[in-house]
Design a protein around this nucleic acid. Structure first.
Length: 270
DNA sequence: ACGCAGGCCTGGGCGC
DNA sequence: TGCGCCCAGGCCTGCG
């Protein structure tokens, strides 16, 4: 579900309720996520959360004891709620704060994760090898060009590879490639440098615009208040099979790449 | 090293 | 109404 804009939206929504707050209680109702929730997560109890950050699609909440790492997987979301609110099915984890509020992790498919990391989280194997943040200055055309050199894999696979650039999932990969006029199937190594520059700009633009609108709610993404994001209405190719291309009216095509749906305009994207 | 398919899960929508 | 199939914002693992 969530790509970078949805994770960023979640971070912004949840941070005011966690950062500067002390965790009173950690409640684990279902520990079987992508990896088991470790017992060490209870070390958060009594701890002050001093910072909330995002690295790629990972959320990081810092305490003196260690860092809480959350990943929302395909179907995860965080909700800020009163502790008295009835639990929903698939509410797996909750943090109760000293303000008597709860942040609950809801994740029907359980592809998400909640880990507790001692020491520098950026050295954790999940984070250590990640590529640059797409909205940072480190994500440049030169970087993308170097990553694409000699690669015969489709360009879409490369921009969805978190070792090359983080945060770009299926929706925004399709959208950015449309904006840049590049076919998702084109071999990465064969995309010209000017077009790679356009792609970098398109990725930045589409992610920033989506964050502005609170992310994309396709089916089930909701922010910390349970509200949807509004970027879906802005999508130009994703989930629009057979609908007219907004530029040239050619029907948008859907096909499968790496077991994922790809949407593109066969005329505008080469 | 690289490219790809499979697997992890649940739930919604569809055709029969 | 029910069943089986396909599909879904991610990403790790293991194969050739």
């Amino acid at each position: 579900m969530p790509e970078l804009p949805e994770v960023e939206t979640t971070l912004r929504g949840v941070s005011p309720h966690l950062v500067g707050r002390r965790i009173r209680e950690v409640i684990v109702r279902e520990s079987r996520l992508r990896w088991p929730i470790p017992d060490t997560i209870h070390e958060l109890e009594g701890s002050l959360i001093t910072a909330g950050n995002r690295r790629g699609k990972y959320l990081l909440f810092t305490s003196a004891k260690g860092t809480l790492l959350l990943h929302l997987g395909m179907s995860g979301s965080l909700r800020v709620t009163d502790p008295a609110t009835p639990w929903r099915k698939h509410d797996h984890l909750a943090l109760t704060t000293d303000r008597d509020m709860q942040v609950r992790l809801h994740d029907p498919r359980r592809f998400g994760a909640a880990l507790f990391i001692h020491g520098d989280p950026l050295l954790h194997p999940l984070l250590a090898e990640l590529g640059p943040e797409p909205l940072s200055e480190a994500f440049t055309a030169a970087h993308l060009k170097a990553a694409c050199r000699g690669r015969i894999a489709p360009i879409k696979s490369l921009i969805m590879d978190s070792h090359i650039v983080v945060g770009v999932g299926n929706i925004y990969a399709c959208e950015a490639l449309f904006m840049a006029g590049i076919s998702p199937m084109k071999a990465a190594g064969k995309v010209s440098t000017p077009r790679l520059l356009k792609l970098v700009q398109a990725i930045r633009q589409v992610l920033a615009a989506s964050i502005e609108m609170g992310g994309t709610t396709l089916r089930d993404f909701l922010n910390e208040k349970g509200e949807p994001g509004y970027f879906k209405q802005t999508l130009r190719v994703y989930d629009r099979e057979s609908q007219p291309c907004p530029t040239c009216t050619t029907p948008i095509q859907r096909q499968t790449q790496n077991n994922r749906s790809t949407f593109h305009c066969p005329k505008c994207q080469r």
